[in-house]
Nucleic acid binder design. Structure first.
Lengths: 232, 232
DNA sequence: ATTTTTAGTGCACAAGTGTTGACTTACGAA
DNA sequence: TTCGTAAGTCAACACTTGTGCACTAAAAAT
């Protein structure tokens, strides 16, 4: 079960150095991808990453256990590669959103729908990120945290240039984005766990998600920097 | 290393049925608790729950592997007990907050500080909940979700009786509470991961947490039910 | 054409795993 | 005092695990 073609990155970019068709390197990359896919596939069946065994991974990848060492020092190193990949996916989402521009009509709901679609088509990466973000081994958790932090920073930049919240200082904008991203990743878990077919539940879940974001954006728009707020 | 006395529940409540000092039952409970504590302790050292082995648990609990079966069918069942316990801890927090009443001055910051303290003194349970909420085995994740859902519902009731948001329908209030709880649990991970001693970082983290909650409550106060909101 | 490199294989090993059944031993009821 | 119950122990089982070493074969370099 091949889950996806791996990292097409730039499909038609004849880089002179790398893609000079080293036939062996190609082959190596293929089993390397098979290993990564195997890990993702196992997680897709309900397992958590750091409960995966090296042998288990190589088994579903269709290679012998010792082959693993030709590509990674241990499973943790594979995990870090997975973190990096997932980070790329996150930034790809941001880039696509950037290109599409902010929808003018019913902005939040549209964004949520786009997000939902993106989560589902990149199911495995989101499963990994949402799952290991607070759970797994400390080193991987740290790496994911970095990636998410970076994502938040980029999102902050984008929103800043869009001038949607002219009232907010860059720091406050970042704090808002952190809140939004947490809400997003949390929703990702819900989206991925949702049994397919139940349109009613999906709708309720989407409505809830939309409302939460509306509250956040609503509060953000009216935010003033200095004051000590809250009801006195 | 005994981490805590287990479930004091009601320290001075001579229940006629249970506490008739069946010396054997006492002993059984003790090793049962040792098993539970062992699991928590292992997680406290950076492991995720469903990577724990039965033997591993019994080893740090100081009993022989086969003893495990006198208390739990398998590790998953232990996990479910852990979920239940953690749920109790969550509700205990709510109850204490209820008894203390809402602080009138600088309400949110106070609450955050109380919450931080509570998370640190109940470190293990929060570590478990925050870690396995989106990570571990599906059945445990589901159980945690139930517990959290219930917590949200209770919190909704409390806020309703406090009349803090008279503008919100019960459903909207629940949605707000969901947002708050997610933000709380997310902050719990940060709080627990924070290296001790770094007061500066702790302060920044707390400020961020406080601000996020302020935005949410601020947005909630101004929320109107009917309208389709957001910037058009 | 020959040699070097290297991705992938096969085999082996020590160590750890979950689970079993028969056992001890001390509590608590008779 | 006797005796059944059951928490905990012991030894053993059939596996799985991560890892090391020698090997093959095909691609790349010479």
């Amino acid at each position: 079960m091949s889950l996806r073609s791996r990292q097409p990155s730039e499909p038609a970019s004849p880089e002179p150095e790398e893609s000079a068709l080293p036939l062996r390197g190609q082959r190596k990359q293929r089993t390397r991808d098979a290993l990564i896919d195997a890990a993702l596939q196992l997680m897709n069946e309900g397992r958590s990453f750091n409960s995966l065994g090296l042998r288990e991974i190589t088994r579903v990848a269709g290679v012998v256990p010792t082959s693993f060492y030709r590509h990674f020092r241990d499973t943790n190193e594979l995990g870090l590669v997975l973190v990096e990949e997932s980070g790329l996916t996150l930034r790809r989402m941001l880039r696509e959103a950037r290109r599409a521009g902010a929808p003018v009509k019913d902005m939040i709901r549209r964004s949520v729908q786009v997000y939902k679609a993106f989560v589902l088509t990149n199911r495995l990466h989101f499963l990994f990120v949402a799952g290991e973000r607070s759970g797994g081994s400390p080193v991987i958790r740290g790496a994911i945290r970095n990636e998410v932090e970076q994502f938040i920073a980029e999102m902050t930049q984008d929103l800043r240039h869009l001038q949607i919240f002219p009232n907010l200082s860059p720091e406050s904008l970042q704090m808002i984005c952190g809140l939004v991203v947490n809400t997003m990743l949390n929703a990702a878990t819900d989206i991925l766990d949702l049994p397919p077919g139940d349109a009613e539940l999906a709708r309720a879940q989407e409505d809830n998600f939309v409302k939460q974001l509306r509250v956040i954006f609503f509060g953000a728009q009216l935010w003033r920097e200095d004051a000590e707020k809250g009801e006195p």
